[in-house]
Design a protein around this nucleic acid. Structure first.
Lengths: 195, 195, 195, 195
DNA sequence: AATGAATGAGCATTCATTCAT
DNA sequence: TATGAATGAATGCTCATTCAT
């Protein structure tokens, strides 16, 4: 029923990002999003099933683009190390270049209902699979230790990146997130231990 | 005004944990918590300023115990490696032994308002400082590389543990979280790289 | 402004009957009627002033046919008793042969606004006048008692028929409505009293 | 959950009757009823599950009283004819003495959803059974013809009374409804036929 | 100290109608 | 004639907090 394309579809999603980033998840009323998108309240429902659908679509669209671009760029790299560097870089770059989106996906959307969280996790899976493939390749090619548990390795990579971005946001983006790419790459590759 | 001690104070906090774990953050009404604690709705407000205060107090009480016990046990260890192992163990152990609390702090409380999140972060700081001290010691004693950025190292440690616990919960605690202590210790110490 | 004739005019009215019978008065949106009639929403407003006008026109058209046919058939009868039998028969027959229309006029349209009810009553008046003329004739010819109050007699006739049809519909048309013609004729003529 | 007794329970029901009678079914918002009852909107929901529950309770309470009083008074009569006279009288009297209630039950509540109609019909059943028992008795005692179909007889009695009250209301109560008791009794007993 | 009845602000969604094409 | 995308007003219900008892 809801026509999920078109100029206004995009306008509404971008308005939602803006409103949520500016006013917070719990103050992002449909009417506020509509006003920001320069459409009537009712127009929202020509493009989205309901409010939750706006948020899911928002996440799906943005995360979809994210994963697509990240995957392409990673595939262009030859060595596993280079691929991991690219993953970290893309992860940080995509969020650093759109701070509103960063706030929305990293902080605000995490306040949502379990039902919405569930759907967001479904979308996030594609990104996690990207990491899983990278780990698999690293082990296969001998770049990563065969002893590592691939799932735990993924927890470490994603957990580290996620925690880094969250803290960067909580510290109000006072430093350049991208400057962390190399040190975090080293940490993930070599761990804490001194040589 | 609010008398933050007494039998009923504890009863209300424990009731809150139970209710939130069972019904979720957004279905944890004050009246439900009061009923679970066997007190009248109004009585809640003799012990807590408002609903947010219940949640903050809950987190403060439980996290306070957590940090105290963790710190003590870590201090009993001699080597840095042993201390890190203990940190991971305590982190996992404390949440594994009280699944209701784990669900509340790890999943449900993260749906709360930014204002509450802020205060929770304040409380969390004590735990993060525990990690920071450990890293500092590791570098000082030569166990950890002098090149690591201490803050990023903390992001890695906390992010990895946090992501591990969250996934364990989302997978409905189908495996033994404690079996992950050693592999995660190895990951954090040596990273992904093959020897 | 509204052009109240033409192929589409009829199509929209018949679509309205179908949609209301199938989905109920409160679920009979203009867009649903338009879809059923294979026209665009906006086209409706080329033939009808507004939604209420569809319903009034529906009732007027169908009731108009009803009264015309009933009047003709009654006029063909010679005795007053035969005329009353025919009235009952036509009333039941017309509704029994078109169950959708029966549901719409007998049940669904009664949920409408007082404003609409008022206009429906105006249309219904032609039918009630038919009954009134019958009573008048009966009294004049000596078939009916000169003591009866003509208005109350009409209430009895119409009320009995109406209640009969409504109950037949509420009992999901599980019996033959026409089998009630004779017993109801006897009731109306002789009342409850034993001979 | 809803506490269906008490001073405010009655106040809300009476306020609902007043508001619906004055403004019509579709303009009887919960907030309007609350204001009329001198309680807060939220208080409504301490006594009723939801808006529909107000209307059902209204009908149940008033109809319950109606049936109880009618039944008692009818039982005090000895002959069947006297009982029928009493039924008609009580039916008219109860509605004539409370015109607001008459408008609500006779006109406004009939605009309600099928779901609500259904529940109203359940309540109405008790009244219809009262009529059924009267007919049964009449036939058994020989006062009514053994040839009448008891169900159709009920349709006639109720249909006639209902149609009479409705028309009296639509004619804005310009005449005394009770003056119709005797003529309608005669109609129901002897029918239209001249002696 | 404890109670619990009462309060009232706040918001997603539907759908009849319009009008530019 | 015909279309259908866009409009925007209107409302039932929840629940944290208070305060008279």
């Amino acid at each position: 029923m809801a026509k999920k394309t078109g100029e206004k579809y995009d306008a509404i999603i971008n308005a939602a990002v803006k409103v949520i980033a500016r006013h917070g998840y719990h103050q992002a009323q449909v009417s506020k999003i509509a006003r920001e998108a320069n459409v009537a309240d009712g127009t929202i429902y020509l493009y989205f099933e309901n409010k939750e659908d706006i948020l899911i679509s928002l996440f799906a669209e943005k995360m979809g683009q994210f994963v697509t671009v990240a995957e392409q760029t990673i595939n262009e790299q030859t060595t596993v190390e280079e691929k991991l560097r690219t993953l970290i870089y893309m992860h940080f770059y995509q969020l650093a270049k759109d701070p509103d989106l960063a706030v929305v996906t990293q902080l605000e959307l995490r306040q949502s209902d379990p039902a919405l969280r569930q759907k967001i996790n479904e979308i996030l899976k594609h990104y996690l699979q990207l990491i899983d493939k990278l780990i698999q390749l690293g082990v296969k090619e001998g770049a990563f230790s065969p002893d590592i548990d691939p799932l735990l390795a993924r927890y470490m990579i994603f957990g580290t990146l996620d925690e880094s971005v969250t803290n960067w946001l909580l510290k109000e983006r006072k430093y350049d997130l991208l400057s962390n790419v190399e040190p975090i790459l080293r940490l993930l590759l070599h761990g804490l231990k001194s040589a």
